Amino acid sequence: MTGEWTWHGGNLAAAKRHFGTDDRPWIDLSTGINPVPWPGAARVPIDWQRLPEADDLQALESAAAACFGVEPRHVCAVPGTEIGLRLAGRLIGGGAHHIVPSYRTHGEMVEASTPAGWDGLDDRGGSVILANPNNPDGRVVEPAALHALLGRRTDDGWLLVDEAFADFDPALSSASSVADDARLLIFRSFGKFFGLAGVRLGFILGPGAALADLRALLGAWPVSAAAIAIGTAAYADSGWIAAARRSLPERAAALDAALARAGYRASGDCPLFRLIDTDDAQGLFERLAHRAILSRPFADQPRWLRLGLPASEAELARLAAALADG
Results as ranks from 00 to 15, higher is better:
residue 3 G to S: 07
residue 6 T to N: 02
residue 13 A to I: 10
residue 14 A to Q: 12
residue 15 A to D: 05
residue 15 A to M: 10
residue 18 H to C: 10
residue 22 D to P: 03
residue 24 R to N: 11
residue 25 P to F: 14
residue 26 W to M: 11
residue 26 W to V: 13
residue 27 I to F: 12
residue 30 S to N: 07
residue 33 I to C: 14
residue 33 I to L: 00
residue 34 N to C: 07
residue 35 P to W: 03
residue 37 P to G: 08
residue 39 P to N: 02
residue 40 G to Y: 02
residue 42 A to M: 06
residue 49 Q to N: 12
residue 49 Q to L: 15
residue 52 P to S: 04
residue 52 P to H: 03
residue 54 A to Y: 01
residue 56 D to H: 05
residue 56 D to V: 05
residue 58 Q to R: 13
residue 59 A to C: 13
residue 63 A to M: 14
residue 65 A to E: 14
residue 71 E to R: 13
residue 72 P to R: 00
residue 74 H to V: 13
residue 74 H to K: 10
residue 75 V to Y: 10
residue 76 C to M: 12
residue 78 V to Y: 10
residue 80 G to W: 09
residue 82 E to C: 03
residue 89 G to E: 03
residue 89 G to S: 05
residue 90 R to I: 04
residue 92 I to T: 12
residue 92 I to E: 08
residue 95 G to P: 04
residue 100 V to I: 15
residue 102 S to H: 11
residue 103 Y to C: 15
residue 106 H to V: 05
residue 108 E to Y: 01
residue 110 V to C: 08
residue 111 E to Q: 14
residue 116 A to G: 09
residue 122 D to R: 07
residue 122 D to V: 13
residue 123 D to A: 06
residue 128 V to P: 00
residue 131 A to D: 13
residue 132 N to D: 08
residue 133 P to C: 03
residue 141 V to E: 06
residue 145 A to H: 07
residue 150 L to S: 09
residue 159 L to P: 00
residue 163 E to I: 04
residue 164 A to P: 06
residue 164 A to K: 08
residue 165 F to V: 11
residue 172 L to A: 05
residue 177 S to K: 00
residue 178 V to D: 07
residue 182 A to M: 03
residue 183 R to C: 15
residue 189 S to V: 10
residue 190 F to T: 10
residue 190 F to G: 12
residue 195 G to E: 10
residue 197 A to Q: 14
residue 200 R to F: 06
residue 203 F to K: 03
residue 206 G to L: 00
residue 208 G to F: 01
residue 216 A to G: 07
residue 221 W to F: 14
residue 221 W to S: 15
residue 222 P to Q: 12
residue 223 V to A: 06
residue 224 S to F: 08
residue 225 A to H: 01
residue 227 A to N: 11
residue 227 A to F: 04
residue 230 I to F: 01
residue 231 G to D: 10
residue 231 G to C: 06
residue 235 Y to I: 13
residue 237 D to M: 11
residue 240 W to K: 11
residue 257 A to W: 03
residue 260 A to H: 14
residue 264 Y to I: 00
residue 265 R to Y: 01
residue 267 S to R: 08
residue 268 G to W: 01
residue 270 C to D: 14
residue 271 P to H: 13
residue 273 F to Y: 15
residue 275 L to P: 05
residue 277 D to Q: 13
residue 278 T to R: 11
residue 284 L to Q: 13
residue 289 A to N: 05
residue 293 I to D: 04
residue 296 R to E: 02
residue 300 D to Q: 06
residue 302 P to W: 08
residue 303 R to A: 13
residue 306 R to E: 15
residue 309 L to G: 12
residue 310 P to N: 13
residue 312 S to A: 15
residue 315 E to W: 05
residue 318 R to Q: 11
residue 325 D to H: 08
